[in-house]
Simulated assay, not measured.
Amino acid sequence: MIKGNQVIIPTPFNEQGEIDERSLINLLDHVMNLGTEGVITLGTTGEFYALTNAEKKRIIDIASERLKGRASLTVGASHSGTDIAAELAAYASEKGADAVLVTPPYYGQVTTEGMIQHFATIGLIGNIDLMIYDGGGGVEVPVGVIDQVRQLTTRMRYLKLTTPKPSKVREIHEAFGGEVGVLAGEDLLIMPELIEGAIGLTTAAGNLRADVLTNIFQLVQEKRYQEAQVLHDRHIAPQAIVTGSIRNEFIQCFKFALKEMGVIACDKVRLPLTPLSEARKQNLKQMLINQQLISAAEGSLV
Rank of each mutant, 00 (worst) to 15 (best):
I2P: 13
N5F: 02
Q6S: 01
Q6D: 00
I9W: 06
E15I: 12
Q16S: 13
I19D: 03
E21N: 04
D29F: 02
V31E: 02
N33F: 01
G35Y: 07
I40N: 09
I40D: 02
T45D: 03
F48K: 00
A50G: 00
L51T: 05
N53W: 08
A54M: 00
K56E: 05
K56G: 03
K57A: 10
I59A: 00
S72R: 15
S72L: 09
S72Q: 11
T74R: 02
G76F: 04
A77K: 01
S78V: 05
H79N: 15
G81W: 04
T82H: 03
I84N: 09
A86S: 10
A86V: 06
E87A: 12
L88W: 07
A92D: 05
S93I: 08
D98T: 12
T103Q: 12
T103G: 05
E113H: 08
G114A: 08
T121V: 03
D129Y: 14
Y133G: 00
G135T: 09
G135V: 00
G136D: 03
G138V: 08
V139F: 12
V139A: 07
I146A: 04
T163S: 11
T163C: 10
P166W: 11
P166S: 08
G177L: 08
V182H: 01
V182N: 01
A184S: 15
A184F: 04
E186F: 10
P192Y: 02
E193Y: 01
E193I: 04
L194H: 10
E196Y: 06
I199V: 12
G200Y: 10
G200S: 14
A204T: 15
G206W: 14
R209L: 14
R209E: 12
V212N: 01
Q221R: 15
K223R: 12
R224V: 03
Y225L: 13
Q229F: 11
V230S: 01
L231N: 07
R234N: 09
R234F: 03
H235E: 09
P238A: 05
S245R: 14
F250A: 06
F250I: 09
I251D: 00
L258R: 04
K259F: 02
K268F: 10
P272Y: 11
L276I: 10
L276D: 05
E278A: 13
R280M: 04
K281F: 03
K281Y: 07
K281A: 07
N283M: 15
N283V: 09
M287Y: 10
Q292F: 03
S295H: 10
G299D: 05
L301T: 07
